[in-house]
Design a protein around this nucleic acid. Structure first.
Length: 294
DNA sequence: CTTATGACCTGATAGC
DNA sequence: TGCTATCAGGTCATAA
């Protein structure tokens, strides 16, 4: 469920809560949430058993929608939240009883006990043991596109210029750009006044600038509001994200466009629900005149 | 190499 | 009430 702003909200809170603290014990209740991609199961199991046990947390970082929690040597865990995953700290008053697949217990002077849970009903998410920063980069992060929160026009051009796939697909492709999911793809395209069906390699320079800046501003605004709780998302303390109040297209198919009053359309694109305004976001590959939108 | 597709799961909700 | 069908914010392996 969580996209970049939701994961960033969680990352900030975790950095505040667990950096400098030492893991006293780790309980893994469901082995299969420990993942071993592309055949390095043995290696993963060897390191995975520890899951930061006895380690002092030195950093909580993020690329796109992925978290990395590590000690000062860089050894750590890569956390993917998938569709329904979350991290909850023991201060959250309503931690669900079910689906708490992993719990980390931190050392404390008893006045300040702290637990951290990995919770994931659908189990599309998972935790990956990583042996160091190089390992993280080689196996995972170097293969991903640049982080969407700070995407530049130039980097977006690299991601779009050589592909005739539609913009929606490219925005959702983590190897092209990291961190945009279904909600912010639709919101960014609407803000940039670009049709989601538009072939990526047909957008001109001013459209490219508009798209890069729309992605950054949508994500930045969502981060500031603690992300979007459309349905289930909760941050590490159990709170909802308020950006749901700012959504202009996502989930609004059949309603009026907030910019121009046209009916918002719906189509399944890249196997995802896609909502756009046919008037604000015309699928024309020609330069069109500025019109009344926004 | 790129790209499209299905698999992986549970839970909430709608319709009969 | 109980059944079935459909939908959900992501990632990964596979095959064309």
């Amino acid at each position: 469920m969580p996209e970049l702003p939701e994961v960033e909200t969680i990352r900030c809170r975790l950095a505040e809560a667990i950096v400098g603290r030492t893991v006293k014990n780790t309980v893994l209740r469901r082995r299969d949430v420990l993942r071993y991609p592309s055949g390095d199961r043995k290696k993963g199991q060897k390191h995975g058993r520890w899951l930061l046990m006895g380690k002092e947390i030195a950093s909580v970082s993020r690329l796109g929608k992925q978290l990395y929690i590590a000690d000062k040597l860089g050894l750590g865990i890569r956390v993917c939240l998938g569709m329904s995953g979350r991290i909850a700290l023991s201060g959250d008053p309503e931690i669900p009883k079910r689906h708490r697949h992993i719990t980390w217990y931190f050392e404390s002077d008893t006045s300040n006990p702290l637990r951290m849970h990995f919770i994931d009903p659908r189990r599309f998410g998972g935790v990956y043991a990583v042996t160091g920063t190089k390992d993280l980069e080689n196996r995972f992060w170097n293969r991903m596109g640049p982080d969407a929160l700070t995407i530049t026009t130039e980097k977006l051009r690299d991601a779009t210029k050589r592909t005739s796939r539609n913009l929606k697909s490219v925005l959702l492709d983590q190897n092209a750009i990291s961190g945009v999911g279904n909600i912010y793809a639709d919101e960014s395209l609407h803000k940039a006044r670009l049709a989601p069906q538009r072939a990526a390699n047909t957008i001109n320079d001013s459209e490219l600038r508009r798209l890069a800046s729309s992605i950054r501003s949508c994500l930045r605004a969502a981060c500031q509001m603690g992300g979007t709780t459309f349905k289930d998302y909760r941050n590490a303390d159990g709170d909802k994200g308020e950006f749901v109040k700012k959504l202009r297209v996502y989930g609004r198919q059949g309603l009026n466009c907030l910019s121009c009053k046209s009916l918002l359309e719906f189509e399944r694109l890249a196997q995802r629900a896609t909502v756009w305004c046919p008037r604000c976001q015309p699928n024309s590959e020609k330069i069109h005149k500025e019109h009344t939108c926004r």
